[in-house]
Design a binder for these strands. Structure first.
Lengths: 189, 189
DNA sequence: CGCACCATGTAATGCGTTACATGATTTT
DNA sequence: AAAATCATGTAACGCATTACATGGTGCG
């Protein structure tokens, strides 16, 4: 599926693998990520499939840049995928929830320490969505007015991130209070 | 990490791979899932590592049941993992968000169809958390009063699922209205 | 008559991460 | 002096899914 993320970025502009990784980490990164190594190998595969083409720009004192451009076949594949209805919900693996589920043998304090730490992490992420991510989107529309339609959708995904983190922090607050009041002092086992 | 989910289930009771899959699909399934094939191979690996032991119960007219029991080493490994602080947020891959992010070249109607379909899926999942999952937890505590402490934590994860789906549905409602009012009628490209 | 449930496993394939390999320029 | 940025790629490994292989019982 990374395939379509790459085609998506290249449908906006021709880019190198390195540049795609940069954009990804501040945009789709919160719901779709990849390491550089996987981006490079996937781009290579996409070129073999005829979905993208690459041109090498020689550089001095640095590795040459390999700039990828989407082909018409790539655009069509992307459009078909975008139009395909999403019929199933993605399972969202969550380490904290998994630990909490099996934490009955742990002490109340260990559980609360976990939850309070998590509270900080989610609050930080919430602030990122509200400041950095928001600014990033606003600057894009100022510098590239032709992306106004894209920006409407990017802002919708940013707003999702904001609501998600606010909900997570809220749930943690409630859960911390509940555990403080109802979890037995001594371990169950 | 599936390793710890399996140790977690076996820390509550001795079970077969098949039974673990059944419990998983109605409990941790929403934040940690695995296919039977992976469960079987992982249990085998855990036995080689000395974390679990298995006994074969012969059966007639059916494959013999292989019942796994957690060892003291397994319990210790699980406890260590449960106490380890979770320092990073899991990236939650979301196909719908990825599609939406790159949907600027699609028509307004295609996008709205996607979002409305998704609205139904999340509403259904919300109902499952509110009815089936809730009943399942209540029956567990009635049939196994010694699991009262576990059930406090299971209910917390169920509540997370409920809040998550309610938030997702809410975001979809707002996004649908926003797109209806602000997305251009003709494709941007 | 077909489907779901019970019950176990292996093999092949695909997706993703970590480690390896290189190396100049710019910022702190 | 150390770390981050720019810039590309391969190799090894680990985690996850799909397909293959087997087969009886019970329900609608």
């Amino acid at each position: 599926m990374l395939k379509y993320a790459l085609l998506g970025f290249l449908s906006i502009d021709s880019l190198t693998g390195y540049e795609i990784e940069n954009f990804m980490s501040v945009s789709t990164g919160y719901f779709w990520q990849a390491k550089l190594s996987q981006i490079y190998t996937t781009l290579k595969k996409l070129e073999e499939e005829g979905m993208v083409e690459s041109l090498v720009e020689p550089q001095e004192d640095r590795p040459d840049r390999r700039v990828y451009t989407i082909t018409e076949a790539g655009r069509e594949d992307l459009r078909n995928w975008l139009g395909d209805p999403v019929l199933e919900l993605d399972v969202k693996k969550d380490t904290l929830l998994l630990k909490l589920f099996f934490s009955a043998p742990m002490s109340k304090e260990v559980i609360l320490t976990q939850l309070r730490l998590q509270r900080n992490l989610h609050q930080k992420q919430l602030n990122i969505y509200r400041t950095e991510t928001k600014e990033h989107i606003q600057q894009t529309v100022e510098n590239h007015p032709q992306l106004t339609t894209d920006v409407i959708l990017w802002e919708a995904t940013r707003r999702f991130g904001e609501m998600y983190e606010a909900m997570y922090a809220q749930w943690l607050d409630e859960t911390i209070i509940y555990i403080e009041e109802h979890f037995p002092e001594t371990a169950a086992q």
